[in-house]
Amino acid sequence: MAGNPVHGGDEARFARDLRDEGEPEAEFHPGIAARFPRKNAAAGVLAHDEHGRVLFVCPTYKPFLEIPGGLAEDGESPLAACRREVREELGIDVTVGRLLVVDWLPAHGVWRDSLQFVFDGGVLSRERIGAIRLAADEVSRFEFLDLEAARARLRPSKARRIELAYQAFLDGETVYGEFGRRLG
C-alpha cells in the first residue's frame, strides 16, 4: 500500500490531526488494550450503469456476488479501503461519494463480526465501463443487474444491505443497519 494514504482525506490534515491529538494515552491497567475485541471493517461501492442497474463482481474465491470493495487493512480507514479495493478489483478509479449504509454483520463461522460500509459509487459511463480491467486473481467477471435479478445470487444479508443502500441512495440519506436490516 506504499504511497497510498491510509485515511480517506487530506494527508497533511491527517498528520496535523494526529499531532494535535497528543501523546497516546497510557494504559491504566497494562495489557488491557490487548484483551479488547477487534472488529473487521469492509467497504464497497454501490455503482450503477446508465439504466440504474447495480454493478456486481463475481469473486474467484466465493460462490456469491459482491459489490466492488473489500476489507480495510490495519490502520486504513473504510473510505481509503473502498477506494483501494475498487481500484484493485476493477483497474479504474471510481469517484466514491457519500456514505449510504453502515451495517453490522455478526460473527458467522470462521468470520468475526464486522462493520460494512457502502458508499455511493455514482453512475459509470460506457467509457468508464469499457476501461474496467479486472484483477484476475480476485474477480472473474462483472455484470450490471437490477436488485431482483441479483437477489438469488447474494447471501440474504448482502441482498438486504444492498437494498438498504439503494433506498438510501434514492432517499438521499445514510442508514444504519444490523445484518442488513434497517434500525433507527
Rank of each mutant, 00 (worst) to 15 (best):
T60H: 09
L145A: 02
E88C: 04
E148T: 12
F144R: 02
V86Y: 06
E143I: 03
A149H: 14
L134I: 10
P59I: 01
G22S: 03
A149C: 10
L18G: 02
R182H: 08
P78N: 02
R53L: 11
G44D: 05
V110Q: 05
E66Y: 07
R16V: 00
E178N: 07
G180P: 04
G70P: 05
K62I: 04
A33V: 07
T174H: 15
A15F: 12
A2P: 06
V118C: 13
R98H: 02
V118M: 14
R87K: 08
G75T: 03
L55G: 12
A72H: 06
S157T: 04
A34E: 07
G184R: 08
T60L: 03
G52I: 01
L145Y: 12
R128Y: 00
E173A: 00
L46G: 10
V45R: 03
G75I: 08
L164I: 04
R161K: 14
A168N: 10
R126Y: 04
H51Y: 09
R19E: 13
F14R: 13
F169T: 01
R98D: 07
A159R: 02
D120T: 08
E173T: 15
D137A: 13
G122S: 07
A159K: 10
D49V: 08
D113T: 00
L71W: 04
D74M: 05
L145R: 08
T95H: 11
G180N: 03
F64N: 09
Y61D: 15
I132V: 13
G22N: 07
L99Q: 15
A135P: 01
K39M: 05
E76Y: 12
A26Y: 05
H7W: 12
G121W: 01
R161T: 15
L170E: 12
S157W: 09
G70C: 02
A150Y: 03
A150T: 07
V96F: 00
F36K: 14
L99H: 14
R83W: 00
L124A: 04
T60K: 11
T60W: 05
P106R: 06
G91Y: 03
D93N: 09
E89M: 15
G121A: 02
V110P: 15
K62Y: 06
D137S: 10
G122H: 11
N4P: 11
R133L: 02
A150H: 00
G184L: 07
R98M: 01
R153K: 14
R153V: 03
G75A: 04
E178A: 08
A168L: 04
S157Q: 11
R13P: 01
L134H: 06
E76L: 01
Q116P: 01
T95A: 13
G97C: 05
V45F: 14
L90Y: 01
A42S: 15
C58S: 11
G22L: 08
I32E: 09
E11M: 11
H108Y: 12
R133C: 09
G122E: 15
A34L: 03
D17S: 15
H51E: 14
F117P: 06
F14V: 06
V118E: 10
L100Q: 07
L164G: 06
E27K: 08
A150P: 02
E178W: 02
G3Y: 08
G70N: 06
R38I: 00
E50R: 10
H48I: 12
A15T: 10
V110M: 11
A81G: 10
C58M: 14
I132M: 02
G97N: 08
R53W: 07
L71F: 05
